[in-house]
Design a binder for these strands. Sequence first.
DNA 1: GCAAAAGTGTTGTCATTACACCCATGA
DNA 2: TCATGGGTGTAATGACAACACTTTTGC
Lengths: 209, 209
Amino acid sequence: MKQKEGLMYETAKVAVNAVIFSIKDQRLMVYLNKREKEPFLNYLELPGGLLHPEETADETLSRKMKGVFGIKKQSFWQFYTFTDPKRDPRNRTVSIGYIALVSNIKNTDLEDFYPIDALPKLAFDHEKIIYKASEFLKKNVDNRFISQLVPKVFPLNDIQTVYEVISQKKMDNRNFRKKILNSGVIKKVEVVQKNVKHRPASLYQFVFE
Amino acid sequence: MKQKEGLMYETAKVAVNAVIFSIKDQRLMVYLNKREKEPFLNYLELPGGLLHPEETADETLSRKMKGVFGIKKQSFWQFYTFTDPKRDPRNRTVSIGYIALVSNIKNTDLEDFYPIDALPKLAFDHEKIIYKASEFLKKNVDNRFISQLVPKVFPLNDIQTVYEVISQKKMDNRNFRKKILNSGVIKKVEVVQKNVKHRPASLYQFVFE
DNA sequence: GCAAAAGTGTTGTCATTACACCCATGA
DNA sequence: TCATGGGTGTAATGACAACACTTTTGC
């Protein structure tokens, strides 16, 4: 139960990795970059990076996410730390995993999102990190998360789709509407959809203080 | 979004710390040791230690917990990683926090458990770690956790107390019994309490496969 | 008028809450 | 016989599930 100091203890690099989820065409997507150097040259990988000397992991993530999809401080969550001694073949690196959720994907970024149910082989242990992240997400389906995955205003049916994709089950449309409207977490706004080739939907927004 | 390699990145020591909870006299208790060296000489601290070169954090924790309260592999959970650059005044150390739950405290160990609502000043950031751990516990009240906090067989009312202490609210005794019995997670065993100076209680056990 | 998605109510079942008294034992 | 915790039932309320058709728009 006591610690011994000594030469037997190594040090490690400490990294953060962000699993940035979004939803497109009723599929859960994750943001990946192509590696441009060894190891794992040309493999896809999660964004991330090493902690600077004076930074907390949250600060590292903020820095790395600056300007990316408008991800702000309150919209990411630490979910697990990966410590397999062989996870980086170069030297020992532990990775602190974060989840972030984004809604408004610019068209230029769209090609960097991949459906999580059909990923190729990724760099390092990033498949494992993504798997653990989606388990976490599913286990914590909650309006705070959901609200990150839709734009500021949205039709009710869109948010139902988000619930369905994350929880991986279909819901009854009437029951869903009753429940979310009675819960008081969303309210109607005074504009409606335009330029859709069907009946325009009323739009809603979350009412978090 | 891309990583740059270079001298600007430091390395860090990586530690685990275990927040070992138990319940005594309807209070949530945590296991602490007295530090026998600087820094924080004579302050109380959480048990833990540094990762060895070939270990995952889980393995480090298993090693440290070997023989301690009979804590086995399946009975601890990683909950958060602490990365404040100043959390250890000697050198940079990140700490991966784990929760463990124990029920059978031997009398000789009793004095090492402290009620979490009246802790003195602790070593390092261990107060913060304990706070975060109890938040996690409260948010994840669940039979898998609860079953770790009671002996193999127990009276129904004991387990109600455990629920009450963790969720921090009182429950109605009749409703609690109905609910837990209907849920099918516990079953009666064929012995009853003895040597109590009141009506002896029937005893139950969890029925996890 | 057709395609496409939006929107709407009722009923049955089940889970949750509130609530107060008698029982079995040891001292 | 008293103190201590163990053990029990019923009624009201609220949440959730199942279920099918009409509405509004663009083309």
